[in-house]
Design a protein around this nucleic acid. Sequence first.
DNA 1: TTGTAGGCGTTATCAG
DNA 2: CTGATAACGCCTACAA
Lengths: 341, 341
Amino acid sequence: MVTIKEVAQLAGVSQTTVSRVITGQSKVAESTKSRVTAAMDTLNYRPNMLAQALASSRSYSIGMIVGHLGGFFYGPLTHSVEEFARENGHHLIVTSGEDDHDKELEAIKFLLSRGVDSLILHVSAITDNELINMVASGIKLVILNRFIPELSDQCIYLDNEYGGYLATKHLLDLGHTKIACITGQLYKSDSRDRLQGYRKALQESGLLFESTLVAEGAFDEDGGLNAARRLIQRNLNFTAVVCGNDNIAMGVYDVLADHELNAGKDISVVGYDDAIIARYLRPKLTTVRFPMCEMGKFAVKLVLQMNANKSTDLLLKMTPELIIRGSTNKLTKTDSLPKED
Amino acid sequence: MVTIKEVAQLAGVSQTTVSRVITGQSKVAESTKSRVTAAMDTLNYRPNMLAQALASSRSYSIGMIVGHLGGFFYGPLTHSVEEFARENGHHLIVTSGEDDHDKELEAIKFLLSRGVDSLILHVSAITDNELINMVASGIKLVILNRFIPELSDQCIYLDNEYGGYLATKHLLDLGHTKIACITGQLYKSDSRDRLQGYRKALQESGLLFESTLVAEGAFDEDGGLNAARRLIQRNLNFTAVVCGNDNIAMGVYDVLADHELNAGKDISVVGYDDAIIARYLRPKLTTVRFPMCEMGKFAVKLVLQMNANKSTDLLLKMTPELIIRGSTNKLTKTDSLPKED
DNA sequence: TTGTAGGCGTTATCAG
DNA sequence: CTGATAACGCCTACAA
């Protein structure tokens, strides 16, 4: 391994000077600087991050916790975070928390012991309080997809109410008036906020909110499946469904198929997230796009600013966007309505 | 930050002794050992990995390169590698190579400068030669899903021929005799090997290999789509299709839909990989399972063995497995055959 | 079994 | 603008 020492010798300067051109902090005369860089090139010198980290107590690394690395949701997010981190001279260590309280805590300890400068957390089981305490104890962290008032300037999250509104408004614009809603678990604020958007859109159109048109599901396919079945058993004549996320929509597709109905044609369906599957379902799913990449980038920007002890000027509330595909259509008289036989 | 020094003081021993109980290498008397651990507990001491790494030139970290972190394929793989690495006291730094030669090379440099002990590579653009040179220069690495004879004991790969055989055999067993095959890019050995398995199964059944039944596609949906269209235009009466991977199968589904045909009912379709989408397509896709998690685990085991300078006893060629779902069915006389109008 | 001393490759402090 | 010199926190001969 070629070290700073050899570079210094070849360039005929002190190690300190070489260090200066590496970090780029203090001033170095152009002439000596070029001598040093030339030496670095010919020696093919690469700074040893470990030594840098030890000496400067900065590791230039970011720790990240996600639910499950294999999930639809986290892949693109992690990708954008990693890419942007690397572009900014940092590396990323990702770990999965599995949505389990103890595992999430353990993961944080693990990352900290690895010397990361800061954390990007997508956690669900750790409590607000624990997070607040960590921040109080000096841990630099950014929280994804969750809002904690006390930590409002380190949370990056989506305007979920607006997303729910967008989805519902789209159906209303298509002429639907009997619009069902399948939410995720209602103890999650995401679910509640999206539902609130649904209510708002209805209200704005002068329609009454009917609680029978709402079913609480869970953010996975089974959740959508079960909720959709319950909804149909209620024998309502809805012509469209707003779903808490794309997985739920997938469950709805299945139930519709069981009733020989087609999404888009017979019943309009809107998802949420624009996960990869949204493009793979048939018909392709109209959904509300979760700006994953932007969120990843923002998260990195934010931790970098925190590391530099700058206060942020970033807009932390991200805006969702409606993506219209084939699962929603204008309401026509011929629309069949699902009924329990 | 509490250091080894303070622990030593509190325990009334030298730093060396503390270091010994941390690493657990040399012998320490039980009595002093317990004194030290007690001191570590009360001080809530956490070893500084960076300092350890610098002093011992072992970072207990693994670098990994994948194509694209957001992909179907890499998520589960990365997840299992990360999990298993962590269980063994290592952390993982993943980076994407984007299947681009220079980016892959850059990624390796990046990881090396980060002081990783070893690399797990899923790369496609870097040449065999470059890889061989790296190994020669002392870089410890394991290659995933690719076989290089000179590096045979550091390659973990799938028995692709057997996978192609399994898929085809399954269709033959169902009574199909006119079986088409859509491959991935034939410059990739995966594609060729799978195709070879297809030929072998046909031959074993006494059927003639017809090259018109084979179409070269690419490993994505469009590849499958285009190849399927070409195949249909050839006006052959095939009743089943073996696909190079699940994405291709998805393209086939689409083309079938265009012709008002259903996978499974009218034409049997077999995929390859058992990517997440296989379960999300309708009908669910019969496919050949790529043992991703096992491969991830094996990769970690292998690099750990290499770090310990042990020769391996692992079986590096992994065996695929047929997963039967709804896209394949017994051949009946009523099967409609796709024809060009 | 334990301790001493030197070093890992860099950065930080302080002079000059 | 540049250069000694002392950290950074830990490991590893070597010696006792």
